[in-house]
Design a binder for these strands. Structure first.
Lengths: 188, 188
DNA sequence: CTGTCCATGTAAGGCGTTACATGATTGT
DNA sequence: ACAATCATGTAACGCCTTACATGGACAG
């Protein structure tokens, strides 16, 4: 379970509230690890029960109490252990490929409608990755934590490359359907 | 929920038992939609309750009864509806990217250990896809259902392309860490 | 005689989503 | 006046995984 570890990761930089964590996720790893609010709060309770984090209750006159979470030594140790341990292979479920797999049941127009939708989505994601890299990539030069920042940013490169690969496939598939040219490309 | 629809997809070709379905998954869509046994049986019960499939009880002297499932007209209609409807975007969770994102907390050796593991996995998957395409790709020529077969096989191309993109990224990342060359490539 | 294949399920638990609930402060 | 932001949670439901349970047939 990586949500736990992603939370520990953020808390290793800085102590945060559940609300802050939600923002941190949305602004950074959301494209490969979306986290919703209720899940974050539940996981934080679990981490506190496991002594991976400490809860600091911040009282604020007038407003409701706030809980700030701090990573413990045990939490840091667990984070490091997890980060440095190779993960078991997990295949993601890609429902779009089920649609293509059984595409024999659809007309050309229907399949191409599906493909057009996926093409638009892939292009939109590519635009977002490009924009984010443009935005944050400049901070790299002469940054005192260049290595750490680089490693965070390179996850966007992964997004770029894999969505580009998906887009290439979609376009090539669309073209072959259009041409009724049912051949497989194996490029080594 | 696509498991339901993948099951309907297989049943649209041929009536099968739960056991047969498990084998069908393992031999075809397993790389982008793994399904385990208990899940298949439960989903089949649900589909039967929804009148998407009919249960035929096959009695066999000596051996236990067998249940063979047949898709209904309603099931076919639902399958067609789902196959032809664009899906909402869903971002997959990629725990490996969390490891890289927080890689600043690891040593070069530790990160490269993780990368080496992922490189081996990607290469193994590529080999499997190549072998499957070699094996089944030849059936395409002059096949009476060339279009349907092509659409099924092209999902392997997707696997090939996306794992190749992942592998390229892993190798490039490994090289940049080795060189301590923390720069981002944007290739448009 | 041991293991693998055929064949069907139940139980329990984890992870994730959506909806619901509350309430003050800040910006338009 | 109304919406968005700050801030924290609960409840219910769905999907998936793992482990458990049963039992005959067949191959080495």
């Amino acid at each position: 379970m990586s949500l736990k570890h992603a939370i520990l990761g953020f808390l290793s930089f800085k102590s945060l509230t559940g609300y802050d964590l939600k923002k941190a996720f949305d602004q950074s790893v959301q494209h490969f690890w979306p986290a919703n609010q209720s899940q974050i709060y539940r996981t934080l309770s679990g981490l506190a029960a496991d002594k991976m984090v400490d809860q600091e209750i911040v009282e604020r006159e007038e407003r409701l109490d706030m809980k700030r979470y701090h990573i413990t030594d045990e939490g840091r140790a667990e984070l490091h252990r997890w980060l440095s341990t190779p993960l078991a292979e997990q295949s993601d479920r890609i429902p779009q490929l089920i649609q293509v797999y059984f595409g024999g049941l659809l007309s050309d127009e229907e399949i191409m409608g599906i493909l057009a939708h996926e093409i638009r989505n892939a292009e939109a994601r590519l635009a977002i990755y490009r924009q984010m890299l443009q935005e944050f990539g400049q901070e790299l030069d002469g940054h005192e934590q260049a290595r750490a920042l680089f490693l965070s940013l390179t996850t966007l490169e992964f997004g770029l490359r894999s969505d580009q690969a998906a887009l290439d496939w979609l376009l090539s598939l669309d073209e072959r359907i259009r041409q009724q040219d049912y051949k497989i490309d194996i490029k080594d």
